[in-house]
Design a protein around this nucleic acid. Sequence first.
RNA 1: UGGGGGAUCGUUCAAUGGUAGGACACAUGGUUUUGGUCCAUGGGAUUGGGGUUCGACUCCCUAUCCCCCAGCCA
Length: 554
Amino acid sequence: MDNDNLSNFIHDIIDADLKSNKYNSKINTRFPPEPNGFLHIGHAKSICLNFGIAEKFQGHCNLRFDDTNPLKESDEYVQSIISDIKWLGFNIQDNILYASDYFEQFYEYALILIKNRKAYVDDQSAELIKINRGTLNKPGENSPNRDRSVEENIMLFENMKAGKYGDGEKVLRAKINMNAPNLNLRDPIMYRIIHTSHHRTDNKWCIYPMYDWAHGLEDSIEKITHSICTLEFEDHRPLYDWYLSQLDIHHPQQIEFARLDLSYTVMSKRKLKELIDNNYVDGWDDPRMPTISGFKRRGYSPESIKIFCNKIGVAKRDSIIDYALLEYCVREDLNKKALRVMAVLNPIKLIIDNYPDDKVEELSAENNPENELDGTRVLPFSKELWIERSDFMEDAPKKYFRLSIGKEVRLKHAYYITCTEVVKNDAGEVIAVHCTYDPKSKGGWTNDGRKVRGTLHWVSTQHAIDAEVRLYDRLFNVENPLNSKKINNFTDAINSSSLSILKNCKLEPSLSNINLDVHYQFLRMGYFYVDSNSTKDKLIFNRTSTLRDSWKKT
RNA sequence: UGGGGGAUCGUUCAAUGGUAGGACACAUGGUUUUGGUCCAUGGGAUUGGGGUUCGACUCCCUAUCCCCCAGCCA
């Protein structure tokens, strides 16, 4: 990945900081997910940004779990996040950290703020705190508990920690300014009481730090230099800075960028979970999901995701990236590495009348025209073949290069054939096509200068293996399901045909010894990848993407 | 209408007072044993109005539009 050439406004800031020796020339970043869901491609953007900066500037990037809310988090999510980041190819062996490992330190820091009269325990109910916070246009009102003595605050805070109060009975608040125009500064809550066991600290704690209190401290403890987050945290930066200044500890610079949004999908963990919970998709790794695990199962390569993340750029304005760009990136990568094979998805029979009944020929086929090193394989050829239903048409339009009666086409790697006759069932559906072949065109070529435009893929019926193939389309019918005038709820825009399952597909026999981790190109049909639920007895392929198709029916 | 951000081809990212450029998408050709790949060509943008300047996407004024914030979520 050549990200040395990458640049964006954050790189510019770092360049300037390096020049002024702001952080002793050591650059540290972090990727801080909350383990409350699976990672999606928006996270991949952040991962590539943060790990990419570490690579480019010879620094470090930590994976740090922001596990400050036991109500929503679990080890299952921790494990999925680790595995997704490893799959993307970033080295995190020694860099997996947890906010929960710093809880003791956070507590000590809180005591310092209390002693400096910068924090107090508040007994007000959640409702009251909300009311007294004021509104966008109205200033807040001081809590009656705001001026408790240091001693009383320490005692109450210790009691909070010791579990003497129930959930919501007390909170620790920073004493800043209830009149601040920035709502985040109106005595924000630092600790709340939650009597729930935590996936790592178990029942050791019943007070848990809020994001704003914890995040800067985590960054500071880890000696992060550039704390990169998304735009909605711009309003939180004054608070981030306030906590660190009060404590007078290492002070990273928070920088905000616009999160990734992709057309025809949704990107919030909450919405994705809603799709799962309501059975619109099969789970976090459903191949239609914009999750890392979804893309993996769909057959995207980690490289294609990284190419994409580096191509979309980093800026501060809200934008929606065209899904077509993602598809371009996966095609670009897979075109180089996918092994070409032949598979007929919607089969009809092709009978070569002048080919000997029992003869079987072994033809040689290249595995990848983009890479000679991928070698060749052997294809069995015989009198009866499967071809694609859409490759025959009775009344073909002018520019149809495929099969219709009287027309000659090439069978890839095999022979020229000319269509002679079509067989239909009682319902008028085509069930078989007859043709003759030209024995002199073996390998799919003659020297007589004949022009044969169409080339079809095929599979010998007696050698074919069966498989199920799953075709995927966009999950939503509108570009921006969360903000579309055409619909009320985002689920109204779900594409009801985002999945279609083909159960009668015929694959060339070389696919019987399948390699699970290989990306295939089914010739002329697209890129395909073995599904994780595939078995020896029931082979299942997912279509990663179609090929670009410049042929448009009139 | 309190505060914080942001407006550049259809989409997205650049241009840091000096020829508005790239990528994707689209269109048209060429090559081709995949209607793939590859190659070439084309159309297409500075939110509006003023100002400063030899020169403005960039600086100033003004108007407009969009996003975020009133969780004991992150």
